[in-house]
Design a protein around this nucleic acid. Structure first.
Length: 488
RNA sequence: GGUCGUUUGGCCGAGUGGCUAGGCUCAGGUCUGCAAAACCUGCUACUCCGGUUCGAAUCCGGAAGCGACCUCCA
């Protein structure tokens, strides 16, 4: 088993990964809220943890990867009334809420498939786990870390923090100070403290998504779904919890609080957070209105895009930066990624047809181990890619007959490409997809050249073209109005 | 105001106390009927100010810029 170091947000350092159960890994990643199309920001965590998922499996772990679909209970930050995002959108569009959720879930899946993001082992829906969430809320009430107020239930942050001194351990928030300086809430609020968060919300009359509970007809709070579903499918403690950095507070901090209040310990051992994608230096996000959807990238249909960018270009672009760094979007950077990706794919094709020699004139370093080393160092995909480019240079040099490689060395390089480019990093060659339009174009061009030859009575050339096409399985039929062709 | 993070060459983006990251762009060259590709060469950086050190972009302290989250509201 490879010694994998991963950066743990909880301890602020890289730690050697050791699973709770030998050879098995339980991993939970916060998935999308399905109330809109996925944008580039959604691709980052999906791809980041897809790499981790692939790599853990590659080095021999059996992985259960849980990534949820948030289809209820994610409250809108800028909403006046705490209305559920799904419900709001649904009412505007006059659709059943679940219809909206399903629609965007389907579209999310298509986009992820195109990005070659593997489906997780379990993809639980929050709406399918209302009972588990109610049980969670009840357990917190029983433990005394939550209180009911007017049909809603809130987590008692002050009580929790005084008992454990742990609210803020992930995000670095200084709770002692926040709690002592908090001013009194006015009588209108249901909450005792401003930082208390909702576990269960009583539904307002116009709120469409609602479920029965011991406290009111309502819906679960923002943070309960991940705790409930993570516990259900991965246990009281699991190995890795991932998500975007923007979820660190309050979402993940609150997950820790909920689990710690119940069990005395947090939900997982390693917290991993991917950084944001920025556009002109600003976070790309739904709420900021500056996002570009994945479909828009694939088709180039957005004012900021100079051209369309293929799914693999997007994937490569994201992998060229370390997952904990911010990445700024720009056409220039994307075009550079596109060219670099093409160069890598070309090198692989060249490698497959490379002629072997009796000896290698250049030392083929241990690229395999170098790539493992880079991956083991907190998933340093940029370094993996740099090694692959070095290999590309070697391949091209040999192809130019300026160096030689033995068959063993060539085979070894193929294994590295297969393992890291296509396996671990999940890239794939896009060039061979649907080229019927290309064939049509090529055929009309070839037949036009043949027509020119015929017009010049250059029968040798025109026959040579017809025979060559025939050998490829293409029949040319000369008619009055020119030639037509068909593939036998 | 708080917390976390970040500041590298024309652009993107890694990184270790001393030794070439890599990609893209640009210029010159090899090759080539032309072009493209490939290869070679060049341009060459580490926000600022102090400190530690024989030596720091890399460690420590300070400042500034930038970003995310929070501080208001569920």
């Amino acid at each position: 088993m490879q010694p994998l170091l991963i950066y743990n947000t909880l301890t602020h350092q890289k730690e050697l990964f050791k699973p709770l159960t030998a050879d098995h890994v339980g991993m939970y990643v916060c998935g999308p809220t399905v109330y809109g199309d996925g944008h580039l920001g959604h691709a980052r965590p999906a791809i980041t943890f897809d790499i981790l998922f692939r790599y853990l499996q590659h080095i021999g772990y059996k992985v259960r990867y849980v990534r949820n679909i948030t289809d209820v209970g994610h409250l809108e930050h800028d909403a006046d009334d705490g209305e559920d995002k799904i419900a709001k959108k649904a009412r505007i569009e006059q659709l059943e809420p679940m219809e909206v959720a399903q629609y965007y879930t389907n579209r999310y899946h298509v986009a992820m498939d195109r990005l070659n993001v593997l489906r997780p082992s379990i993809e639980p829906h929050a709406s399918g786990h209302i009972l588990e969430q109610i049980e969670l809320v009840q357990a917190l009430l029983d433990k005394g870390f939550a209180y009911e107020s007017n049909g809603s239930v809130y987590f008692d942050v002050r009580k929790y923090h005084e008992a454990t001194k742990k609210y803020g351990i992930l995000s670095g928030r200084v709770m002692d100070e926040m709690l002592s300086t908090t001013r009194e809430l006015d009588g209108q609020s249901e909450k005792r403290e401003t930082q208390d968060f909702a576990l269960w919300k009583k539904a307002s009359p116009e709120h469409i998504m609602r479920w029965n509970s011991p406290w009111s007809v309502g819906f679960p709070g923002w943070h309960t779904e991940c705790t409930a579903m993570g516990t259900k499918y991965l246990g009281e403690t699991f190995d890795i919890h991932g998500g975007g950095m923007d979820l660190m507070f309050p979402h993940h901090e609150s997950e820790i609080a909920q689990q710690t209040a119940l069990t005395g310990h947090g939900p997982c051992r390693y917290w991993m957070h991917n950084n944001m994608i920025t556009i002109n230096g600003q976070k790309m996000g739904k709420s900021l209105g500056n996002f570009i959807t994945l479909d828009e990238f694939f088709t180039g249909s957005h004012a900021l895009l100079a051209q369309a960018y293929s799914p693999m270009t997007i994937r490569f672009f994201i992998l060229q930066a370390h997952y904990r760094s911010t990445v700024d979007f720009s056409n220039e950077a994307l075009q550079a990624a596109e060219k670099g990706y093409y160069r890598l794919m070309q090198a692989y094709k060249t490698l497959k047809n490379l002629a072997a020699s009796k000896s290698s004139s250049i030392a083929v370093n241990d690229y395999m181990q170098k790539c493992y080393d880079a991956m083991n160092d907190d998933m340093n995909t940029p370094i993996v890619i740099s090694h692959l480019f070095e290999m590309a240079k070697v391949i091209n040099t040999v192809n130019d007959k300026k160096a030689t490689l033995t068959q063993d060395d060539i085979d070894a390089m193929k294994v590295v490409f297969d393992t890291f480019v296509f396996g671990v990093m999940g890239l794939k060659d896009e060039s061979s997809v649907d080229n019927s339009a290309l064939i049509d174009g090529l055929m009309s061009m070839v037949l036009e050249m043949r027509a020119t030859a015929k017009a010049n009575k250059d029968w040798a050339t025109s026959d040579k073209i017809r025979d060559a096409l025939s050998a490829l399985g293409v029949t040319v039929k000369d008619g009055k109005d020119g030639a037509v062709w068909e593939i036998r």
